[in-house]
Design a protein around this nucleic acid. Structure first.
Length: 367
DNA sequence: TTCCGGAGAT
DNA sequence: ATCTCCGGAA
């Protein structure tokens, strides 16, 4: 048993009024979102993958463009990965796009092109973990299963005043209240409540349908649940990138290997500066290692600062010329001398895209 | 500058 | 269990 007898009694005692209050609130306050229209398993799936680690506001535009470009699961499975990454550009966590693409092909092969209405079969697909499996199962197929995302975790931790809400506990709590006939609406309402009312900071308890049965509220400190662990300070790295320009004004870009960070995306080649190394020396060393070429490093073009999950970087981009050697792929998947108007068609991470925009401006033919 | 967030790898 | 993945909003 994952929850205490006290918790289970509490859940059982409030089951009907909790269900009614939440569903009534949701009917009145649900946002009109693209994936809530014309609901199909495919649309639910794409939206749920995009919504992993990403705010609703950010996802909306990406979802619309994705659906326009890949209207069906079949179209997604048939597309080249690079096209999927291009639509994903700027959304972050690019392994989601790679997994999505692989999963679409798996569904074509193993499930006759239809997402399976089965929790375990969904869970077996790349990029679908416990939460996403539950979300697709309940929202798309009305299976009575929990879907505990960060919002639901926060809402339930507060309602039950659980400082350390482990996944199994939270799923047990959802099961205790989940109406079998309205599982999709209930799960979605729970997430919406977390997003709109029971927010991480300054929860709007006065507007909450569960205000009267919330233990954290009764304790007078809803924000104290769930307990957050302190964040570590992130290490910082200086990173260099080469904008290598050829006589014909084309620039050298490389594609990252699939297993590397930002795999499959294009970049201006370079890498981390080592201790005691100048930026110019780091650039020379990296280009020798990655592409087997010797550079003449020119002036600095731009600086980009960016924070990843575990470190921050300051990225220095230098304009360069090739002084010896022909580029080859030593530590990259592919490379290309790209024309200026080609840069915008290649999938890049936000940092390299920022450099690309500077390159387009600086090197554009003068009027 | 800090905060937020699912899945996969280890 | 803990760490690795990103970008935008607050």
């Amino acid at each position: 048993m994952e929850l205490s007898a006290t918790d289970l009694d509490y859940l059982a005692a409030h089951r009907e009024d909790a269900q009614a209050a939440l569903l009534t609130w949701f009917a009145a306050h649900a946002r009109l979102l693209p994936w809530r229209e014309a609901r199909t398993p495919y649309r639910v799936w794409i939206s749920e993958i995009m919504l992993q680690q990403t705010q609703v506001e950010t996802v909306q535009g990406y979802f619309e463009r994705f659906m326009e470009r890949f209207p069906t699961l079949e179209a997604l499975a048939a597309a080249p990965l690079e096209a999927v990454l291009k639509v994903w550009e700027g959304l972050g966590y690019y392994s989601r796009a790679r997994a999505l693409h692989r999963a679409a092909q798996t569904v074509q092969e193993r499930h006759q092109g239809q997402l399976p209405a089965d929790l375990d079969a969904l869970r077996a697909l790349p990029g679908i973990g416990p939460y996403t499996a539950g979300a697709i199962a309940s929202l798309a197929f009305e299976l009575p299963v929990p879907a505990v995302d960060g919002n639901v975790r926060r809402v339930l931790a507060r309602v039950l005043a659980l400082a350390d809400p482990r996944p199994a506990r939270l799923e047990a709590a959802v099961r205790a209240w989940l109406p079998p006939e309205k599982a999709g609406a209930f799960n979605e309402a729970l997430m919406e409540l977390g997003a709109l009312v029971c927010r991480p900071q300054r929860p709007q308890c006065a507007e909450c349908p569960w205000c009267d049965l919330c233990r954290a509220r009764a304790l007078g400190q809803p924000e104290a649940f769930p307990l957050k662990k302190p964040r570590k300070t992130l290490p910082h790295y200086d990173v260099v990138a080469a904008v290598t320009v050829r006589e014909d004004h084309r620039v050298l870009v490389a594609q990252r290997r699939p297993q590397d960070m930002l795999g499959g995306l294009w970049e201006f080649p370079g890498g981390k500066r080592e201790d005691g190394e100048t930026l110019e020396a780091a650039l020379g060393r990296e280009l020798q290692e990655e592409m087997g070429v010797t550079l003449e490093v020119g002036e600095q073009m731009t600086v980009v600062r960016h924070a990843y999950t575990h470190f921050r970087i300051t990225l220095y981009a230098f304009e360069c010329r090739l002084s010896a050697g022909e580029p080859q792929c030593l530590e990259c998947a592919d490379f290309r001398w790209a024309a200026l108007d080609e840069l915008s068609t290649l999938p890049m991470a936000v940092t390299d895209r920022r450099i690309a925009r500077v390159v387009e401006q600086r090197l554009a033919p003068q009027e």
